[in-house]
């Protein structure tokens, strides 16, 4: 093990650049997968005939496959049907598809956890379907979705490391190049990578915990609507 050699300023800079790419890919994929996941979740919640079933099939298939397979598929198989993406966008699209499918499930179960009686009450008090969704279902459902969503975003950030297999110049790829020069750098470099991932992800999870306890506090106040308690499963499910 050679910490001094591994952490030369050139190497550190190179690794940090890699982490920069990790963060950029994660940020873009988080935004896109949130949009995609919300859309798919709403389609499944709304139970449109045909479209709902089709969405369910696609989402379940993607959710039940390894992300690694999806990355390879997007980068190497899609060109065979004319969809050609650069390495950066292949990584983003694969992450968006996979995490979007996971998020759609969070959104769907979040919306469905909103007490049915509450929805009916809102409707019978004269609110339209749209108003009920906007003023009742979404506010309550969204609050419940926050912790599992943040967990999913943490998963996404970790999952960007898999794009190393298509040579995306992210942190793990940079790590490979640095310790490729000297095998005694392996441990120090992996340790540094772990610290970088941990710092960002742990901060996110602390944020999630704060949101969760705020949400818990709000839920205990009367009138905020007692639905089915957010199942611990929903939170755990998020982690891939």
């Amino acid at each position: 093990m050679d910490f001094a050699g591994a952490f030369s300023s050139d190497n550190l800079l190179f690794l940090l650049k890699g982490f920069g790419m990790t963060l950029i890919v994660a940020a873009v994929a988080i935004v896109l997968s949130f949009i995609l996941g919300t859309a798919l979740g709403l389609i499944r919640y709304s139970r449109i005939k045909g479209l709902g079933t089709l969405t369910m099939l696609v989402v379940e298939t993607i959710r039940n496959l390894p992300l690694l397979l999806i990355i390879f598929f997007v980068k190497f198989a899609l060109p065979e049907v004319g969809i050609q993406l650069s390495t950066f966008w292949a990584a983003v699209v694969a992450l968006t598809l996979f995490e979007g499918a996971m998020i759609s499930e969070i959104v769907r179960s979040g919306l469905q956890s909103v007490n049915k009686g509450l929805v009916e009450a809102a409707r019978s008090s004269g609110l339209t379907q749209a108003q009920t969704l906007r003023h009742v279902v979404l506010p309550i459902g969204m609050r419940r979705m926050v912790p599992p969503l943040v967990s999913q975003f943490i998963s996404l950030l970790k999952d960007t490391s898999l794009a190393v297999v298509i040579s995306l110049p992210e942190l793990m790829h940079s790590a490979n190049i640095v310790y490729g020069h000297d095998v005694s750098y392996v441990f120090p470099v992996l340790l540094l990578a772990a610290v970088l991932y941990f710092a960002v992800n742990y901060s996110l999870s602390l944020l999630s915990k704060r949101l969760e306890s705020n949400e818990g506090a709000r839920r205990r106040t009367p009138g905020a609507g007692k639905g089915k308690p957010a199942a611990p499963a929903a939170t755990a499910k998020a982690q891939a």
């Binding site: 798919l40 449109i48 993406l85 699209v93």
Partner: peptide
Amino acid sequence: MRKRRWLGAGASLLLLATVALTGCGAKNE
């Protein structure tokens, strides 16, 4: 409860927007 269809339509639009966005991104990059 009866008609959530508009909702689905909206969601489909969002979906299309995402696809378009990723698509454009792919072309723009």
